[in-house]
Design a protein around this nucleic acid. Structure first.
Lengths: 249, 249
DNA sequence: TATTTTATGATCGTTTATATTCGCTTTGTG
DNA sequence: CACAAAGCGAATATAAACGATCATAAAATA
């Protein structure tokens, strides 16, 4: 059997079983322990499996949730709500709109549902730009420094880049919403970019599920009354007096 | 049996079996090991199969991303040569370099081999930026309009964006190299971006396998003497008098 | 027919994959 | 905590596979 063939089959085998020992693989593929370990090391380097002590596990079972490792179980439950929010946000885009799409997972979700091909789109998310292009949309990207973790574009060049445009609609993500602190995010540089984007948009929409209400991160990027919040549940009447909230059923 | 006929049948055979050894093919097609290997090398360069140690595997089984399905059998892609060129180019990057990486497949290959984490990188390729980030490198992206097919960033904003930087090294792709026409590419907008990048770099390297020599596309983006060519084979002595050529063994 | 181009098979030094062995580290259990 | 068992990476030797080269044969071209 070919080396490559054995490794390909090994990946399939591990994915099927989800977790296997070195001994299992030795029997299954009739190879020595050294060979199996070598294979696992290679496949691990290729990111095709996860090599662990004693054997290997499928990578796919974990990879789904690794996007935001610090997020607690509480937040990850709101998948369905986020989906509805994204869908509604996408439906707001009209012909000839000049749309800014903020980096972040919520806005990324939104791109799936965008249907309007007559609008123009601009984003500071690398993955966002790629997704927009794949949908055949008229896409632009803001230049600047790339942030490793979130694959967002930030920095002074980015801020300056935004400054020359005037969007009709901006779709933003946030980490916290509070009446006093407004919309907040943990990263200073990201906050600057967000602030500039909101400032250069005719209307700004914040996409946030109900868990974001009452949360405050380190840096404010917009006042509570400057944006329209799209959410799934209005948790507190305090907010309605300050800003417009669209509750998605 | 015709050589071409044998190779066509070989592809079908490999696709059916998904993975075969050289010995298998020798028996099946009654040819020597040398001939089988030669065939496999050709078919690999043509991206019709995957040549691996000991034999070959079907390409469809693994490579989900069939980026260029329209490539005809005749268009040899010179995989091996491109690989060597990319590797050498990557080795040229030093500490504190400010490196521009042009969009395109050849330069994308190059990123795999980049090891210097002390240099700064800037690119107009969306996928390039993503790959650079994944390697943990200090990455920037140029802003502007996104071109759907190549996922490159182009347009006046992009040109203006480049204008404010001064690179120590630029790594460029090209479609054609000619003594008279210089370096050429089919797209006008892409040519403008390339021209600007070369103009703002202390040294510019052109990554091109030997098949690019003598080719001329619609738009010139640099004179023949303005860049250093990194290639695998110097086809014509005419070039050496005009520019510096590094031939990779 | 003479010459060039292309395909093929044999040889040879080099590279790659493998199994085995040997210390060292991790894990689990008393 | 201590100790045994299992797992691990590194080093090594061996066999298979490889690419490069060369000479020959077939096909195309002039």
């Amino acid at each position: 059997m070919l080396t490559q063939e054995r490794r390909d089959l090994m990946v399939a085998y591990i994915n099927e079983k989800n977790a296997v020992t070195v001994a299992d693989l030795m029997k299954e593929f009739d190879a020595s322990a050294a060979t199996v370990r070598r294979d696992l090391s290679v496949l691990h380097d290729e990111r095709r499996i996860l090599k662990v002590f004693g054997g290997a596990t499928s990578i796919s079972s974990l990879d789904v949730n690794t996007k935001e490792p610090s997020v607690t179980a509480k937040a990850s439950l709101n998948v369905e709500e986020k989906d509805k929010i994204s869908k509604y946000a996408a439906s707001l885009i009209n012909d000839d709109d000049f749309v800014y799409i903020d980096s972040g997972t919520t806005t990324l979700e939104m791109i799936k549902y965008i249907e309007n091909t007559r609008a123009k789109y601009i984003t500071n998310g690398i993955v966002h730009a790629k997704k927009l292009l794949e949908k055949g949309l008229d896409t632009m990207i803001i230049g600047g420094k790339c942030k490793p973790t979130t694959e967002a574009i930030i920095g002074p060049d980015c801020v300056e880049g935004i400054r020359r445009y005037h969007f009709t609609k901006a779709f933003m993500g946030t980490n916290g919403i509070s009446v006093d602190a407004g919309f907040t995010t943990p990263d200073v540089d990201e906050a600057r970019v967000k602030r500039e984007a909101v400032g250069h948009s005719y209307i700004s929409y914040i996409l946030a599920d109900h868990s974001k209400f009452g949360q405050i991160s380190s840096v404010t990027f917009a006042e509570i009354s400057s944006c329209c919040i799209i959410t799934d549940k209005e948790v507190n009447k305090n907010y309605s007096s300050k800003t417009i909230i669209k509750v998605v059923s």
